[in-house]
Structure formats: structure tokens, C-alpha cells
Design a protein around this nucleic acid. Structure first.
Length: 482
DNA sequence: GTTCTAGAAC
DNA sequence: GTTCTAGAAC
């Protein structure tokens, strides 16, 4: 094979050196690591020209050159690309785009770093480089790169390493193997963004939260000479991850809630009957136009909402719709059409047949979906929306719409009351037990992975952990605490 | 339910 | 300086 130049791109702590040495170990004698912190010798400061010279020596000796420095923008990369061209070699980029906070923590935790970038003082440098890197955008094929491989998680890095470790004389491009081994993920905010809805623009890095780990997913671009910006969500979505059809419903659902609210505000919409039989003490004052009433609007007039919920399933007694803000790859709600059922506390023994039919509707829907992690169905103990709704949600909890601790804890703690628990309570002729004070406390519990129970510092850390966690999910914790 | 944003955390 | 959370507004 002709030797190649592999340009690593990433902040300190992203794992560039780890990747480099792992690749060297996987293919002994094939790769030379070019690191600016060590290129000038012990105790001496390196420079870009010295790195270029070292890369040249490696290539001329027939070794691949891994450029282990931040390489955060075009000007930082161009000398290495020019060198490759001069020696008739290919230049490739691997972007290690992990959450900045994770990188900062790693950089701060290390000791005796080659470049002296360690300890607490390293964090600000990581944040600064992270914002510079984000501002510069991703490496482009138009720079002269034969491929750009983007890793957003440890799992991606592992696959990238595997792909490059197997790079031999076959001419098979690692990017192709990487792309093939990338699991299809439906969590890309970019999949939502193709129709330009406001919500989608925010998730794609426009106006809302930006640069967080959520909403990102492995993105790859083959060096086909394309000049499309890789950080453009549409471009990414159209490069194979955005399968027509899979993103369609979500594309609409981003603003379905707003549409629903507008509908609710139309004076022509008949206000539903006031729900009787509830304690006024714990009920908020009834407001027909409140967003809290949106689900009841669907319950009383399913046909009027069908265009907004094209996947809607309606039976005599109940309705299934896709959640407008799905908190997992698959997330539906099953609502009774009976408008007077407020929440799980409205239920009594006589509702068991209704719940059973809701369960059947949910099971039929689940049977049409493939998910490796299974589903859970049940109720929030203190829901925000004012009409009884059963959540049917895949247990990946991998969605750009799942953003807050409250979102997480509402599905992964005893705040979530499994359907089976509700049925057991009702069969025992008990009302379903809910303590609102305790429920609120559950939402504020520290974040934990629902599979391995590891504590997580914040949502970005949790989300990047959960997609990589291989521990088999434990059965849902019983709601007995409530 | 989401959005917005101040200020805490890093 | 940037990221992230949590509370108020809707």
C-alpha cells in the first residue's frame, strides 16, 4: 500500500494520542506517530514545520503518518495535506468530536502529559479550543482530504480504530467499513431538520442549545470531492443516515405541538366537558386553551388531528399517537377517548378492561417496530398534560428531545408507574398510590444510567454514556416507593 | 408539555 | 469564557 497521512482533529483530552498509540499497537511497524509535544525531543517545544518534517520522513520510510495534534482548522491542516499530495499519498481526517466537558475532565485528570497540559488548569484551554474548533467547522473533502471520519462517542472511536487497523493493501477504504459498521441511529437532530421547522433548527445547532453531545451522531463523509459542509445538517442527513421515510414523521412532529396549540386556541374548537369527579384541591383551574389540554383535544376529536398524527390508531375506546417530542427512538401515547379521565389517580377497578384494551393497542404497535432494547409502558405519577395517557417508549431513551434531568427521571425512576403495577393496584381494589411530594423528589434525584446504575454528573455525560453502555437493562424498578 | 435565559458550574 | 441547569413564562 502507499503510505497515507491520517490527520487527527480534536481538542486536548479527545483521545488523539490514545488513538494513535492504539493504532500503532494494532498494526506494528506500519504507523509513525507525529506528535508536536514530543517531535522536538525531550523538554523541547515542537512546531508545525517540525511535524511536517517528521511526517515526511515517515512517509518516505514507507510508514503511515498519524498527525497527533489538534489540527483544529484548515490552515492547521493544509501543510500535511500538501505534503501528502507532494508524495502522491492520500490524506485522511479523523475527527474526535466528543463532548467538550468530557475532554476537559480527562485533560484535567491526567498527569505528566507530554505537552504539560494537565491538571485543573487544562480545562479552560480545552473549552477555548473546543469553541474554536466548533467555529472552524469540520474538515472538508475540498481541503484535499480523501475521507473525513467523524466520531461522536467512544463506540465510534472504537469502530474507527477497527476500520483503520484493518487498513492493508486491499485499497479498501476504512471510511467505508466505518460507515457500514455504524449502527443506524434515528436520534440525529439533523434527521429532524430537513423541513426547516423552528424546533429542528434549534436542535441542529442554530438557535437553541448548541454543541452539546445530544443530537449528534456518527457522521461520515466519503472523499468524493463533495464540497458540502459536513456540519450542515441537511448535507449529513442526505448522506445515507437520513433514510427517506424514517425521518418523515419526526420532521413533522417537531412543530406538531405548536400546531396543536393553535388548534386548541381556535374559538371554533368546542371546549370539552369539564372533567367531573376530581378533587378541586389538587386540580388546577380548568383552562380550555391551556397546553395542558392538548391531549384531551385529540381524545375528543381524533379525526381533526389525524393530519398532524399520521400514525394515529383509533379504536372505539382509545387512541394511539406518536409523542410530539419523543424521548426515545420510539415513543407513543395511548389515550382513552373518555374525556373525564385525568391521570392515573382517576382510575378505579372498573377501568381494568379499558386499560387492558389500551395495552393491546400498545402491543400491536410495538409489534410493528424493531428495537433491541425493548419497551416499557406506564404512566407518569404526576403528569403535566391533563388527560390520562399511557407512555409506550423504547428503553434506549436516545433522543434529542430528551434534554433534562426531569425528562430522564420521569422514565427511569419510580416516578414512572408501569402498567402492570397499575393493574395490580386496581385488582387489589386499591387506588393507585401516588405521593406528589415524593414524586417531585424522584424527578430531582441524581442522574443514573438505567442499565448499569452508574451515577452521571450531567445530561450530556449521561447521554453519551447510555448509548455506549453495554450492561443489559435491569427490569424496571418497582413503583413501590410511591 | 416546551422555550427562554440568568447565573451556577466547570 | 463556555456549558449546563433550573425556574419563570407560556
Amino acid at each position: 500500500m502507499r503510505p497515507v497521512v491520517v490527520i487527527l482533529v480534536g481538542v486536548p483530552g479527545a483521545g488523539k494520542s490514545t488513538f494513535s498509540t492504539a493504532l500503532q499497537a494494532a498494526s506494528p511497524g506500519r504507523w509513525e506517530r507525529v506528535n508536536q509535544d514530543t517531535v522536538a525531543g525531550p523538554g523541547r517545544k515542537g512546531s508545525r514545520p517540525l511535524c511536517v518534517a517528521a511526517a515526511r520522513a515517515a512517509l518516505q520510510a514507507g510508514h503511515g503518518a498519524i498527525i497527533d495534534r489538534c489540527n483544529w482548522d484548515g490552515p492547521q491542516r493544509k501543510d500535511f495535506i500538501a505534503l501528502a499530495k507532494q508524495l502522491h499519498c492520500e490524506a485522511h481526517a479523523i475527527v474526535l468530536d466528543l463532548p467538550t466537558q468530557l475532554c476537559a475532565n480527562r485533560a484535567a485528570a491526567r498527569v505528566d502529559h507530554e505537552g504539560g497540559l494537565d491538571g485543573p488548569g487544562a480545562k479552560s484551554a480545552v473549552y477555548r479550543l473546543g469553541s474554536q474548533l466548533a467555529k472552524a467547522g469540520r474538515p472538508q473533502p475540498s481541503e484535499g482530504l480523501s475521507s473525513v471520519m467523524v466520531c461522536n462517542s467512544e463506540a465510534d472511536v472504537k469502530r474507527a480504530l477497527q476500520a483503520w487497523s484493518e487498513y492493508r493493501t486491499s485499497g479498501k477504504q476504512p471510511i467505508e467499513q466505518y460507515q457500514r459498521s455504524t449502527p443506524a441511529k434515528r436520534t440525529l437532530a439533523t434527521l429532524w431538520g430537513k423541513h426547516g421547522s423552528r424546533a429542528a433548527a434549534g436542535d441542529a445547532g442554530g438557535a437553541g442549545q448548541t454543541n452539546g453531545s445530544q443530537g449528534r451522531s456518527p457522521t461520515v463523509d466519503h472523499g468524493s470531492g463533495s464540497t458540502e459542509p459536513l456540519h450542515n445538517s441537511s448535507a449529513v442527513a442526505e448522506k445515507g443516515l437520513g433514510r427517506p421515510g424514517t425521518g418523515r414523521q419526526e420532521a413533522d412532529s417537531g412543530n406538531a405541538f405548536a400546531v396543536l396549540m393553535n388548534r386548541a386556541k381556535q374559538p371554533a374548537a368546542a371546549p370539552p366537558a369539564k372533567a367531573p369527579g376530581h378533587s378541586n384541591a389538587r386540580r388546577q383551574q380548568y383552562q380550555p386553551n391551556s397546553w395542558k389540554d392538548a391531549l384531551r383535544q385529540v381524545a375528543v376529536d381524533p379525526d381533526g388531528h389525524r393530519t398532524k398524527y399520521p400514525e394515529m390508531i383509533v379504536s372505539e375506546e382509545c387512541i394511539l399517537i406518536h409523542d410530539a417530542f419523543p424521548k426515545a427512538a420510539h415513543h407513543a401515547l395511548v389515550l382513552p377517548r373518555e374525556p373525564t379521565l385525568h391521570d392515573v389517580r382517576s382510575l378505579n377497578r372498573a377501568h381494568i378492561p379499558l386499560l387492558t384494551r389500551m395495552k393491546v393497542m400498545a402491543e400491536n404497535w410495538m409489534a410493528s417496530i424493531e428495537t433491541s432494547e425493548g419497551f416499557q409502558m406506564g404512566f407518569h405519577s404526576v403528569p403535566s398534560m391533563d388527560h390520562l395517557h399511557m407512555h409506550v417508549i423504547s428503553k434506549d431513551f436516545n433522543s434529542p428531545k430528551l434534554k433534562t434531568k426531569q425528562h430522564w427521571n420521569s422514565f427511569t425512576t419510580a416516578f414512572f408507574i408501569p402498567l402492570e403495577q397499575v393493574l395490580l393496584d386496581l385488582e387489589a381494589k386499591d387506588p393507585v398510590a401516588v405521593d406528589p411530594v415524593q414524586a417531585e423528589a424522584l424527578l430531582k434525584q441524581p442522574l443514573r444510567c438505567h442499565k448499569c446504575q452508574a451515577a452521571m454528573r450531567n445530561m450530556p455525560d449521561l447521554k453519551s454514556h447510555v448509548v455506549a453502555c453495554t450492561v443489559r437493562a435491569a427490569p424496571h424498578r418497582a413503583a413501590s416507593a410511591l
